[in-house]
Each structure stands twice: as structure tokens, then as C-alpha cells.
Amino acid sequence: MSAAPPAALADPMLPAPWRVRAVRRETADVVTLDLVPLASGVPCFAPGQFNMIYAYGVGEVPVSLSGDPADRSCFVHTVRAVGEVSAAIAGAAPGSVLGLRGPFGSAWPVDAAAGHDLLIVAGGLGLAPLRPAIYRVLARSERFGRIAVLYGGRGPAELLFRDELAVWGARADVTVAVTVDHADPSWHGHVGVVPALIGQIGFDPPNTVALLCGPEVMLRFTATALRAAGVAAERIHLSMERNMKCAIGLCGHCQFGPDFVCQDGPVLRYDRIAARLAVREI
């Protein structure tokens, strides 16, 4: 499935000014920003796509959209402060202005997954790029078989969207399982790695589509566990991360074998990249 057609931009390298409407702190170093355009309407986006966000004078980084694709009032981005640029974006105050280009990239094949069991598997910050897919799925959950959201994090304090996970978990049409790498004894949830959750939920592997996002190591082990459980490689989709400067296939930075992660990805099909994932430094 290909991405939604890119917004018609006269100059795809020219950021447009967007205002920070609201900031929500998710964890110690992660915030979610609601952004509204100063000049235009809010474009459509497909779950899984990203924008290039520019902090004035500091630089630009790719950030996945993390909001509801049905909400056309703003773009929502969840950012972790890991470098100079992401720290500037995460530190943007309500009312301040950021530059934005996009949306770019391929999308989660949500509609193509209709009729199948759906496993949405996230690790760490990887829940943010999957949240638009979860919103779209849950808006019409009757289209799918069993739906499960599996989420792994470092510890309870570093989990994203805990309130929403609880809301989703209370629904009858979706199973939510959350695990952490380690916890203090006050945590009563799962402790262990994400692949270990796969055996604990009911689904029909030959009829399952899986969407994976998280650190590359976690993606590799999760995809291996899904294959071992009987999920077809071509029904496993994962979102890759690489260095990006242009997001439009012109700067060369995001190459992953023959793919440009910015255009062919970030969402790529496992059967096409499995061999590459096993190669170091590719």
C-alpha cells in the first residue's frame, strides 16, 4: 500500500510556520505537541507518516504523527528530547512557532488489514507512530478480527499514553498487554520483553496482520517471534528509523539497502527487509 499523495508543495524543502497550540508532558523527557498552521488548513495524513519539524535556527528532524487522523484541527507530534534539535522542539512553549514540512512517507496498511486479526506491537517511543493506526482501527473495530495492542517499555515511568492504554484496555473489542523491562514491586503488570507477550494473547497467526514500531533490536526479535508463531512475513509491517535531511528522497541519508526510508518507508514489509535487518551497519 502506498502513502497518501504528498501535499502539493511548491518547494518541498520550504517549512511552513505552525503554532504550538498545546503541550502535554508524557514522561520526563517526552512531550506531545498540538500544532496548528498559521497560513493553511491541516492536511490529511495517513497513520505511520511523519513530518519534518524545524526549530528556528537550530535544525530540523523527522517526527512521526501521533494524533488521530480523523482530527483535522491540528497535527499531533510526540517528541523525545534526545539531541539539540529534538530538545528545542520538545521545549517549545505553547504559542511559539515551529516550521513544518510534510506529511511524508509510507503508511501502516490499516485498511488492508480489515478482515484479519490485528496485532499492534510497540516498544518505547514506538507507540507514538502507531497511535494514529490504533485510533483508525478502534473507530471501526468491527472491520477486524481480534485486535491486540502489545506495548513494551523500559519501566513504568517511561510508558507513553498510560491513561489511553487503560481506556483501550477496558474496551471489549481490543486486548491491551503492557510489559516493562524491569520494575519496582509496586508494578503489577507484566515484566519481560515484548515478544514474550505474543504467547499470552489469543490470535489466529495465519490470519494475522502485525504492525511493529520500536527500537530496531526489538523489531527484529518481535518479527522473529511472530514468524515462529506462524504469522506470514508479508503480513508483518515495521517502521524503520534512519538519518534524514530532506525527507523527499534527494539527500541520500536514509538509505537502507535499495530503499529510501523517507519515501519507500518508514513503514516497510518484513519479508522484503528481513535479510537486511540481519546485516550489521547496513
Partner: peptide, 18 residues
């Protein structure tokens, strides 16, 4: 073996700050 592999993955601290 599965638990040993899981422990190794946890040791990587993949979600932590690099």
C-alpha cells in the same frame, strides 16, 4: 533458552537513552 534470550534483550536496555 527463551528466558535467557529475553534476559539478553532486556540487558540491551533498548528503550533507554543511548
Amino acid at each position: 533458552v527463551r528466558r535467557m534470550q529475553a534476559a539478553r534483550q532486556q540487558m540491551l536496555d533498548v528503550y533507554g537513552h543511548p
